[in-house]
Each structure stands twice: as structure tokens, then as C-alpha cells.
Design a protein around this nucleic acid. Structure first.
Ligand code: MN
Ligand code: MN
Ligand code: ZN
Ligand code: ZN
Lengths: 140, 140
DNA sequence: ATGATAAATGTAACGATTACAAATGTGGAG
DNA sequence: CTCCACATTTGTAATCGTTACATTTATCAT
């Protein structure tokens, strides 16, 4: 499985050496844009890189997060997901099938109550049922 | 340490038997309203109830969540926090001192992109520095 | 009191993540 | 090219929050 997105320059710009594993992991995220877990990333890349270690996936992702190339998502408390899109947007997770969808949004935070605070990071996520799972529930 | 808030009726209404431990745990949340971790709840209540088990804290909280009396917060992936206030509001966590503050907000989700989806739950949280920690940083 | 049922407890198991030491790869000096 | 220092990767063990499960304790109707 080869992903045609070249992320070499992106890594170099951020002072991260573009090793074989790092390139594969970051281009996987850039190509798929699927908010995967470490488990998913590992399982899909281990075919390409039989010697791949899960530790390397964790290490690389943490490097990317430090550099601001990737954003971690804490939608579920027991599984971190990773997003190549670091722009400000929300996430919807279907509690039936687990798929995650991006959505755009505008947050209006009451500025009076937050004066004096320095906000560095905003996170929004919703949970519910996706259209497909709603359909399936009707049939049963 | 005695919390004067009587949550007996609240439990009965939700078909949860008001045992000694459950009353203590829920009234702790109702009185403090401090978004504590299980660790915090356990440490502060074990003085009152020397036989208290952490499992009981987990079990009780999960009961409360099922009944909608309490909302779990996944701000950090490795620690669930518990909120007695189940109304729609956002949370700010200071990345220096860890304190969590409520804030009111209005989310405008682009309805076109979410048509067909059933949204059951919205979550918003921010991270940054609280006023006190900003002050301390300036001094150093 | 007695026995049935529910709740609480203690310990073991689990799963995601990190720590750490050993193995492997890389790149430059000689 | 060979050797060596250094960075990266790998495998394994440790950690930590949470859950599973079996045992003990409490509650309550008979
Ligand atoms: Mn996204
Ligand atoms: Mn709150
Ligand atoms: Zn779905
Ligand atoms: Zn602070």
C-alpha cells in the first residue's frame, strides 16, 4: 500500500529527520485523514514495514504532535485518535459504528467570564448516530 | 467532613438505592462541584469511610452516569473527571495548575453538513493558562 | 432469627501508553 | 571503504486507570 503524498519537506521544515517509518506514518495520516487510533495505523502499516514496532508509532506521533503537525483527539477516554488536519474544527463520532466525521463550527465563548485567561486550544466533539446507523435501526 | 446537601431524593427518583457510600459520593460532587477524578473523590472520602473501596467509587459514578445525574469529562485521555452539573456548558483546564473552570457558550454547528445525523451529546473544552498562573509566569 | 437479595470490598485482569535497554541504521572522519 | 559516534527503531517490561469477578457484608421481608 503506497500513499502518494510526499511529506518529506514537512518533516524537514520542523527539524524532524524524515526516516522511512516517520514518512510512512505521516503520509498515512495525510492520505487517509481518517482520525485513526495507534492500533489502526500499526495494523495498516505493518504489511508495508514488517519490522514496525508499535512503540515507533507512538514515538513518531508524539514527535508530530510536539511539532504541531498532528492533533490528538480525546473523544473517548480509552483511545487517543490522531488528526492530520490541525485547523479549528469539530468532530462527530457515531456511537454505533464508531466513524468520525469533521464539521465546521463557530464557538461563542462568553468573553466576560473568561477575561484574564489565555486560551491556547479549543476542542469540540459530539456523539450520536450517523445517517446509515439511523437507517439500520429503523429496519430492525 | 460532612456535606450538607441531601441527595437522597435525587437517588430514589432515579431508582438508585441511597446507600451510605452512594450518598457520600454524590453529595461530595454536589457540594464541591470541582470536577474531581476518582482518585480525588476516594482520597477525600476515605477519611469519613475508612472501609471505602475505589471500586465502589467507580461503580457508583457509573450508576450516576447511567441515570444522567453526573456527566463524565474526557479532557485528558488518561483521567476521567466527573461533573455534577449536567447542563450544557464548556470547560477550561489550566495546563499549569490543572484547575477546571466552567464557562457558558453557544455552539453554532453548520447544520447543512450535519443533516441526517442525530446529535445526542455535545462537548466543548479549552486548555490554556488561568490568570493566577499567567501572573506567576511573568514574575519568573 | 433466617434466608434471599443487593451492595461493598479486595484482588486480579485488562488495555493503552510509556520507560528503558539492546539492536539497527546513518553519516562523517580518516 | 572502514570505523566510530549518534540517532532511530525495536522488543519487553513497567505503569496507571479502569473493569471483572469472587467473597464478604449489609438490608430487609418473612
Ligand atoms: Mn478532524
Ligand atoms: Mn462543569
Ligand atoms: Zn454509524
Ligand atoms: Zn493555573
Amino acid at each position: 500500500m503506497i500513499y502518494d503524498i510526499d511529506v518529506t519537506e514537512e518533516l524537514i521544515k520542523n527539524n524532524i529527520k524524515p526516516s522511512y517509518q516517520r514518512l510512512k506514518i505521516l503520509s498515512y495520516l495525510a492520505f487517509k485523514r481518517n482520525h485513526p487510533t495507534v492500533e489502526q495505523i500499526f495494523n495498516e502499516l505493518v504489511d508495508d514495514i514488517p519490522t514496525l514496532s508499535k512503540t515507533t508509532v507512538y514515538n513518531s506521533l508524539n514527535l508530530f504532535i510536539q511539532a504541531g503537525l498532528v492533533k490528538p483527539l480525546n473523544i473517548e477516554d480509552h483511545e487517543t485518535r490522531y488528526d492530520y488536519d490541525t485547523s479549528d474544527h469539530g468532530h462527530f463520532k457515531c456511537i454505533e459504528c464508531g466513524t468520525i466525521k469533521d464539521f465546521s463550527l463557530k464557538i461563542d465563548i462568553d468573553n466576560d467570564s473568561m477575561s484574564g485567561y489565555e486560551i491556547l486550544e479549543k476542542n469540540v466533539y459530539c456523539k450520536g448516530y450517523c445517517p446509515r446507523c439511523l437507517e439500520n435501526k429503523k429496519k430492525i
